[in-house]
Computed example of a mutant assay.
Amino acid sequence: MKKKPIALLLILPLVLTLALGLATGCSTQNEQALKGKTFTDTMGRQITLDAYPQKIISLAPAITEILFAIGLDQEIIGVTDYCDYPEQALTKEKMGGFKNPNLETIVAAEPDMVFIAAGVQEDVIKKLEELKVTVVVLDADTIDQVISNIELAGSLTGKEAEAKKVTADMRTRMTNITSKLKDIAKPTVFVEIWDDPLMSAGSTSFVNNLIEVAGGVNIAAGNTEKFYNYSMESLLQADPDYYIINTHAHTPADIQNRTGYEVLSAVKDNKVYAVDDNLISRSGPRVIDGLEQIAKIIHPEIFGN
């Protein structure tokens, strides 16, 4: 009986050594498989890697949410002033605003990889490239593109398994909605992006995709701009079945009490709703929450409300 602890003490180092060797071997094999591998981001840019990044900066709130969702808390060293979700993002060093990140701070942090959105940030992309910083662009106008971006982020950072888990859940939840909407009448929807001047989301916007997937018709889809001024005359003429606003700007009561809005069907039928702006404007994992909320609003007969 007394010999067993001694035997275990003799065997334990051998087991630990073997386990460490296997882990090191797997790590080496992974790095060798990665070395020189090229990936293509959403702008068609080529990124060649020799190792997974250990120091990552995110310059867009939606991308920050993606990176945290796939388990990169330790690797993320910096985010923008507007990156407020999840809570861990608030503890990271701030790299400036979304439109005007602090390039000096970014370069000083010596990141292995910087994730950035397209659009207004394209000038920043060029400046960072000139400073020899590895830049990855992730941008999306549809839920499917968000899913692809999450999987790409996973491949670029060695978090493929985590990314696939996130996207599998998203696909399941989206299918749960779309599968129940076949041959269902589609109500018309107006989403107020801003009130002064009145603005809505056009056919190329992320919001438009959410409305369509949720089983609705976006009355502002006649314009190809992502966001544009929408006249009161057009609103009255289209007379949407549902009126959706952002929670940060107004309440449904504000819309119902506006002069001239009392003639709208959505107002008369008490179908004015507020949705968290971050769930329908940030192209990250939480878009599925936004999709589910819109589906419940415009199809209460199917999803409840």
Rank of each mutant, 00 (worst) to 15 (best):
G158T: 11
D144P: 02
A214G: 07
Q121I: 05
A201M: 02
N223Q: 10
K94L: 00
P101V: 13
L181C: 00
V146P: 14
L128Y: 06
I177K: 03
K99P: 03
C83S: 06
K94I: 06
V137Y: 04
T175P: 01
L210Y: 11
L210N: 06
E130V: 14
D169S: 13
V133N: 06
T178P: 02
N208Y: 01
S155P: 14
L138R: 00
K127N: 02
E87A: 08
E160Y: 12
P197L: 09
Y82P: 01
E151C: 03
T172Q: 08
G215H: 05
E110D: 10
V146T: 02
D141W: 07
M170Y: 03
P86V: 00
F190L: 13
I125M: 04
T142H: 11
T167K: 05
P111V: 11
E162L: 12
L128F: 07
S200A: 12
M95L: 13
A161Y: 09
I150D: 00
T91E: 13
M170K: 02
T142P: 11
A163W: 12
V191T: 15
A221K: 04
W194K: 15
L210W: 03
A109E: 05
K180L: 08
Q88F: 14
K159I: 04
T224M: 08
T167D: 04
A109P: 05
E87L: 13
L103I: 13
K92L: 10
M174Q: 11
V135M: 10
G119S: 09
M199S: 11
D139Q: 05
K132M: 08
F190D: 14
S148V: 10
I184L: 00
N218L: 07
N208F: 00
I150Q: 01
D183F: 06
T105A: 14
V135A: 03
I116V: 07
T134N: 15
A163C: 12
I177Q: 03
T157V: 15
L103G: 03
V217K: 15
I125E: 04
F206D: 09
E151H: 04
L138D: 02
A220D: 09
V124I: 15
I184M: 00
K164D: 08
S200I: 10
D112L: 05
A220Y: 02
T134H: 12
D112S: 05
D141G: 09
L156W: 10
P187H: 09
I150S: 04
T172R: 03
A140W: 01
T224C: 05
T188M: 01
V217H: 12
T188A: 01
K159T: 09
E160M: 14
I177W: 10
E162V: 15
I219V: 08
I184S: 01
L138W: 01
C83Y: 07
K127S: 07
K186F: 02
G202A: 03
K164I: 07
G215V: 11
T80D: 05
V124D: 02
S200M: 12
K186C: 01
A221C: 08
N149P: 06
L131G: 08
Q121T: 04
I219A: 02
M113L: 05
V136A: 08
M95C: 06
P187G: 03
K127G: 00
K127V: 13
A117S: 15
